[in-house]
């Protein structure tokens, strides 16, 4: 992982998959980016696991447990929290 205060962040050009689709659709049909997004959105959403609640909840649960542990360790060190 590049250091947050380094410039290595900018050496690789990153493309948002969604933005790429929006641009393509806008150019194909010669429409506004806003109109292109409305068209592309349902297709893009099909690639996201909204309905797989078992998997999604498992990811969230794992992360929440990590945070609970972190908060506990910090409180033990005397850090105040909300």
């Amino acid at each position: 992982m590049p250091e947050p205060t380094s410039s290595k962040h900018y050496e690789e050009k990153f493309e948002f998959p969604l933005w790429k689709l929006i641009k393509q659709r806008a150019e194909e049909k010669d429409i506004s980016y806003s109109a292109a997004y409305q068209e592309v959105l349902p297709e893009y959403q099909k690639t996201i696991r909204y309905k797989d609640t078992e998997w999604t909840d498992e990811q969230i649960r794992k992360r929440n447990i990590e945070i609970a542990g972190l908060k506990k360790r910090e409180r033990e060190k005397g850090v105040k929290g909300d």
Binding site: E27, D30, S32, Y33, S34, A35, Y37
Partner: peptide, 8 residues
């Protein structure tokens, strides 16, 4: 303006 422009 950028996203609404029909001609981009």
């Amino acid at each position: 303006c950028w996203m609404e422009c029909p001609k981009r």
